[in-house]
Design a protein around this nucleic acid. Structure first.
Length: 571
DNA sequence: GCCGTTTTCGGCCCGACTGTTTTCAGTCG
């Protein structure tokens, strides 16, 4: 059992305890333990009880429970809880506005066990009859169900990338010499993906048996000579396609898409007396093969430069490739700094020193520690006094392991657009990321004014996760993006591409729009633990899909070149 | 359930908002 699997069970125990109404501190202990395990550098399965107990937050009970789990693959305590509440009720917690108490009430009073049960109950008007609920709550539930339906079958890109990598590794161990590659929306780097497509070039047909026998496979949907489909846990569908090596490029191109890109490409081929399909590029007149074993060859034969998969969305990339105008896209190794991270001073999992060391390990030259401000009480946010004391401790670590360190803050933008901390405090810090964490329901006018007012504050350097969306869960708040971007461009405030898997905020289209309006962007991890610097990959994917080049992103600069570009140093 | 140089009990991050109340419960962050 690996760490994510252990963490998952602990998290389920916490959720079930919460539904049950158990001691909140016990719930926190389980949730905390789940985070610890998920972020632990070693596999907990390899640690004995004593070693487990040395981890802060893991005591006698949790150490024993974790051992039981990794030794037997099961947890008796978990089983007991599942006997009280069917595990399907955990799905209800994923609905916006539905928490553990509501789940417990719905189960107890209406026998709601599944999302489908809830939908029936709400649409039949039974929810409003429960004490403590009313017509508005029922409408809220129906809206949350509607949102969920809209996102059904979609999954976050980073999760799917990990899953695809697991499958590809497994296949690679069983098919030496085969070229394996995940294609489809995963290769293009879209923020959410519906399924996993894997291409195997030059493999034996027996690879299909290996594929359908993977432990994660729940059901085999189809098994053929060249294509098999399976359903994995969490309902993810994965397809494996076998193609001959001679068609590798054509198949990669075809299965990577997007549909719009492929249609435009085939249209271009037809105009040149050619025909493009998943087997190759052929002359229409006599069916001779023109290209097929590499993608580059296909694009070249069509008079185009090779187009990076992230751009293949039918958003002008073919015209750009024809005119030699494709951007030299930013890559992960172009990032030299991270401008949004948290430490144990607020809700981070690792202290400042560990975060700096992790930044160094991630190949960064500089990092800003930007803990929360006081309005985020749940995160133990900092007031002015604590912020300044924290800043001086952060600065004392400047240069640790050769990393330049900025003492910053992620300061809340309050409902009226003022900032959560006094200007003189913000002025004494090295960098201020301003973000909205409350009052999401304001109308468009209010929210726009709020953001504009925040941007007017001379000590705001970066606007953090600007739209507030949570992928597959919450829509962006209503505001005039164009007005905010124009103000940011005018004032020299940078706009963040937040790398959290469920944020990716700004998104690709908006980031491209922002750049075109003269806004400067940053790519920041918003890391709450030392392992989370990995997320920078995902933000870079967004940036690439936004056609961004290194010059468009402030934190590709060296430290000395970057600092003067901060808004506070511009006059 | 964890923790401890205020140590084996009694603490443990909490404020804003919403909808349901008629003084509060639930959710979110």
């Amino acid at each position: 059992m690996d760490n994510p699997a252990v963490a998952q069970v602990l998290r389920e125990v916490a959720d079930l305890l919460e539904i049950k109404g158990d001691n909140p501190f016990k719930i926190r202990a389980y949730r905390n333990a789940a985070d610890i395990v998920a972020n632990h550098p070693h596999e907990v399965a390899g640690l004995d009880v004593l070693a487990l107990r040395e981890i802060p937050g893991i005591g006698k009970d949790l150490a024993a429970r974790i051992r039981e789990l990794v030794d037997t693959g099961e947890l008796g305590y978990h089983r007991e809880l599942v006997a009280e509440f069917p595990p399907s009720v955990l799905d209800l917690l994923g609905l916006q506005g539905i928490g553990p108490k509501t789940v417990a009430t719905l189960y107890r009073d209406l026998g709601v066990r599944t999302v489908d049960d809830l939908e029936r109950a709400a649409s039949e008007g039974r929810v409003r009859q429960i004490r403590g609920m009313g017509a508005k709550k029922e409408a809220l539930i129906l809206k949350a169900l509607e949102e969920r339906k809209r996102h059904a079958g979609r999954h976050l890109m980073p999760d799917m990338k990990d899953l695809a990598a697991t499958l590809v590794d497994f296949l690679a161990q069983n098919a030496a010499g085969t070229h394996l590659q995940s294609v489809g929306s995963l290769r293009r780097g879209t923020e959410t993906c519906g399924d996993i497509d894997i291409l195997a070039c030059g493999a034996e047909p027996s690879l299909m048996d290996v594929f359908v026998s993977h432990p994660l496979v729940e059901r085999v949907l189809g098994r053929g000579e060249t294509k098999s489909s399976v359903r994995l846990k969490d309902g993810v569908q994965a397809d494996l396609r076998l193609v001959p090596s001679s068609s590798r490029g054509a198949a990669m191109q075809y299965f990577t898409g997007s549909k719009a890109h492929n249609i435009a490409l085939r249209d271009r081929a037809v105009g040149q007396g050619l025909k493009l399909n998943e087997y190759g590029l052929f002359r229409t007149a006599d069916d001779t093969l023109v290209a097929g074993d590499t993608e580059e060859g296909i694009y070249r034969a069509l008079g185009l430069a090779w187009i990076p998969p992230e751009l293949r969305e039918g958003h002008g990339e073919i015209e750009a490739a024809a005119g030699g105008l494709l951007p030299a896209l930013v890559a992960r190794q172009d990032l030299r700094g991270d401008l949004h991270t948290h430490s144990t001073e607020t809700d981070g999992k690792d202290d400042v020193r560990a975060m700096i060391e992790a930044a160094q390990a991630a190949g960064l030259e500089y990092v800003a520690i930007t803990d929360h401000s006081r309005a985020l009480a749940m995160a133990n946010g900092l007031d002015e006094t604590r912020a300044l004391a924290h800043a001086s401790r952060i600065r004392s670590l400047d240069g640790h392991q050769g990393v330049r360190v900025l003492a910053g803050i992620e300061c809340d933008i309050l409902a009226d657009g003022t900032l959560d901390l006094a200007d003189d405090c913000l002025a004494s810090l090295d960098l201020v990321v301003a973000s909205v964490h409350s009052s999401f329901a304001q109308d468009k006018r209010q929210m726009t004014d709020r953001l504009l007012r925040a941007i007017d504050n001379p000590w705001v350097d970066i606007l953090g996760h600007p739209t507030g969306r949570l992928l597959l869960k919450r829509s962006p708040y209503a505001f005039d993006l164009e007005a905010v971007l124009d103000a940011a461009a005018r004032r020299g405030v940078a706009i963040e591409i937040n790398c959290q898997a469920n944020r990716l905020d700004l998104c690709d289209v908006q980031a491209r729009f922002a750049r075109d309006r003269g806004v400067r962007l940053v790519v920041s991890s918003d890391a709450h633990s030392r392992r989370a610097f990995r997320r920078l990959d995902w933000g870079v994917t967004v940036a690439r899909r936004a056609w961004l080049q290194p010059v468009d992103i402030l934190n590709t600069r060296t430290f000395d070149a970057f600092v003067p570009l901060l808004r506070r140093h511009q006059r």
